[in-house]
């Protein structure tokens, strides 16, 4: 049951990611990205991270991608122009990607015995557990991340400010 769900949404995720690259119109790419984000949320849910799944949908699919589509709509971005692409990308890019994939596969297969397995389905996390992780055990990284986002916002405001 859980495995079937995993296969469906894993497949949907990969298909969305491929479609994102293949589509010519930016709005279709943005919509594919939403599919990817939402299927990822289902995968999180299968791994027992309920809150993370909900946050993924609300923050990424719901808020950030709305801003993406908003900007595409506002700029009325047209269909992308096809170019032949840079030679370097063909010469270095494809072998590079293949090499990276090979290395990752090799490492994972080699270290298979040392890696823990994840169980699909059948978890329950209470808000109490969640908050003690977020606000006690991992308080510093959590707060530092918020400061990082604040700095990014301030940077954006500083860049967008008109000179007088």
């Amino acid at each position: 049951m859980y495995l079937v769900l995993f296969l469906i949404f894993g497949g949907l995720c990969v298909a969305g990611a491929l479609n994102l690259l293949l589509q010519h119109h930016p709005i279709n790419s943005a919509l594919s990205l939403i599919v990817v984000m939402t299927s990822l949320a289902v995968l999180y849910l299968l791994l027992g991270a309920e809150f993370l799944a909900a946050a993924q949908v609300i923050v990424y699919s719901g808020a950030i991608m709305v801003l993406f589509t908003f900007v595409i709509m506002l700029l009325n971005a047209g269909v992308e122009e096809r170019t032949h692409g840079s030679k370097a990308a063909y010469i270095v890019g494809f072998p590079g990607a293949a090499a990276l994939l090979g290395i990752l596969v090799y490492i994972f297969l080699k270290q298979k015995d040392h890696l823990g397995g994840a169980k699909l389905g059948g978890y329950l996390v209470t808000t109490h557990d969640l908050s003690s992780v977020l606000f006690r055990d991992l308080l510093l990284p959590f707060e530092v991340t918020s400061v990082l986002i604040l700095v990014a916002i301030l940077g954006a405001v500083a860049l967008a400010r008109k000179e007088h």
Binding site: I27, L31, I34, T38, A41, E50, F51, A53, A54, A55, V57, I58, S61, G62, A63, V66, T69, F70, M73, L124, V125
Partner: peptide, 24 residues
């Protein structure tokens, strides 16, 4: 659902696309 409240918030946040895409 254990996170029922968040599910509702999540689904309503997806609903924006219906309006945004129709207009565009």
């Amino acid at each position: 659902v254990n996170i029922g409240l968040l599910v509702i918030l999540g689904i309503t946040s997806i609903g924006v696309y219906g309006i945004a895409l129709s207009g565009w």
